[in-house]
């Protein structure tokens, strides 16, 4: 799909993990990604917003899990065959927190040249980039921690 990963540091900056959220393919900055696991069991929190699926347990700690499809305003995928939870670290360096992003599938690790990203509306959606004949939504995970 994407360009094979290169080992240069500069290239590492543009490395993203592609995941599927509904009809969208989203690129998560690989630096923020801590782990990809099979979809964790989530316990809902009554009264929470739709984006927050609930709490899960990851590594013996509570992990808030957000619904990526709801975050990017995608239609929920119909019975994904292999859903995953992407564990990411967000927030400032002095107070990074662990978050889970529930996605329909984890695709691959690709390099998205920064200059190919067309800036978006800002905030959580950094922009969009063409990749392998497809438009990938590049996400700004730091925005989740602020």
């Amino acid at each position: 799909m994407g360009e094979p990963l290169k080992e240069t540091r500069t290239r590492r900056e543009g490395t993203h993990l592609l995941v599927r959220a509904g009809e969208y393919t989203c690129g998560l900055p690989l630096a923020a990604v801590r782990r990809v696991v099979r979809a964790l069991t989530v316990h809902p929190l009554p009264g929470a917003a739709g984006e927050l699926e609930g709490l899960a347990e990851f590594g013996g700690e509570p992990l808030p899990v957000l619904n990526l499809a709801r975050l990017v305003n995608a239609s929920p995928g119909a019975n994904p065959s292999y859903p995953v939870t992407v564990v990411v670290r967000v927030g400032p360096a002095d107070g990074r927190e662990m978050l889970g992003l529930a996605a329909d599938a984890a695709l691959e690790v690709v390099h998205v040249p920064p200059d190919s990203i067309v800036a978006g509306e800002g905030g959580f959606l950094q922009g969009e980039a063409p990749l392998g004949g497809e438009v990938v939504r590049i996400l700004n995970l730091e925005a989740l921690g602020s």
Partner: peptide, 11 residues
Amino acid sequence: VAPALRRFWSE
């Protein structure tokens, strides 16, 4: 409680 949690849960 993480900020992301507070962001989406008012309690």
